[in-house]
Computed example of a mutant assay.
Amino acid sequence: MSLKPSVNKNDHTQGNENADLVIVEYGDYQCPYCGAAYPVLKELMREFGSQVQFVFRNFPLSEMHPYAKPAAIAAEAANLQGKFWEMHDAIYENQQNLNELYLFELAEAIGLDISQFKEDIQKAELEEKVDSDFESGVISGVNGTPSFFINDKKFNGGATDLLQLIRENTN
């Protein structure tokens, strides 16, 4: 399966924007497997951040994970204040405490303007962004989280396999 649409300006990216190696993760903020992948992906970016562009797309499995979508919307709201990755990281680092109220604590902890944040999380376009990420995942053949794509091709493996692969191919 290949990634549809390809990485574009609506995506959240970090690392090297001109990298030959583009990794996309479809993730769910409440998924324990995504939580376990998070430190591995942090390690990957520490080692190869200058050679890799990393993209996160929302894939909340809402039926199983009731806080996944609120968390995704909270990260999108943080993005409006230029702090998407700070919120993304804070959620994964505190995943075991996740609930709707706790998202406000995290917003405060990363220094967001809280009244702005409260307004922003109500915005329909943030939910639309999360839904459109989710739909792109479905079209791209994502059926669980985390799911990874390397240069638009689905990668059949977890974060550890991904790090291993990149280590083998960049040294």
Rank of each mutant, 00 (worst) to 15 (best):
I114R: 10
V138M: 14
A159N: 05
A90H: 05
P60C: 11
P5M: 04
W85C: 02
D113P: 02
M45K: 06
Q122C: 04
N143P: 00
A124P: 08
N8A: 08
C31H: 03
Q30L: 09
Q81T: 11
Q116C: 01
H12I: 04
L165V: 05
L61I: 15
S62V: 14
A75Q: 08
G158S: 11
P60N: 10
G141I: 09
L61V: 15
S62T: 15
V52M: 04
G27Y: 03
F59D: 08
S140N: 10
H88V: 06
I121P: 02
G137F: 08
Y102N: 00
V52S: 03
A124I: 12
I23V: 15
I139S: 09
P5L: 03
P70I: 08
T13R: 13
E168Q: 15
E86W: 01
E108L: 03
G111E: 07
D89H: 07
H12E: 12
N143T: 14
L3T: 02
K83A: 09
S132G: 00
A19I: 08
G82Q: 09
G15F: 05
A124K: 15
D131Q: 14
F84V: 08
F104Y: 15
D11R: 06
S140K: 09
F134Q: 12
K154W: 00
G35P: 02
S140D: 08
D20T: 11
K83H: 06
V40T: 15
Q51S: 14
K69R: 15
A90I: 01
I91S: 00
L3Q: 06
A19S: 13
S2L: 09
H88E: 07
S2I: 13
F104E: 09
Y38Q: 10
V40A: 10
D152W: 01
Y33W: 12
L126G: 10
G111H: 06
N16S: 12
F54E: 02
F48H: 15
E125H: 13
D161H: 11
T13C: 13
D20H: 11
R167K: 13
Q164K: 14
V52C: 07
F48E: 13
A159C: 10
L3C: 05
L98K: 00
S2H: 12
S6T: 13
Q95M: 11
I121T: 07
Q51Y: 12
L44G: 03
K123S: 13
Q53A: 08
F56I: 02
A72C: 06
E86C: 01
A37N: 09
E108W: 00
Y67K: 01
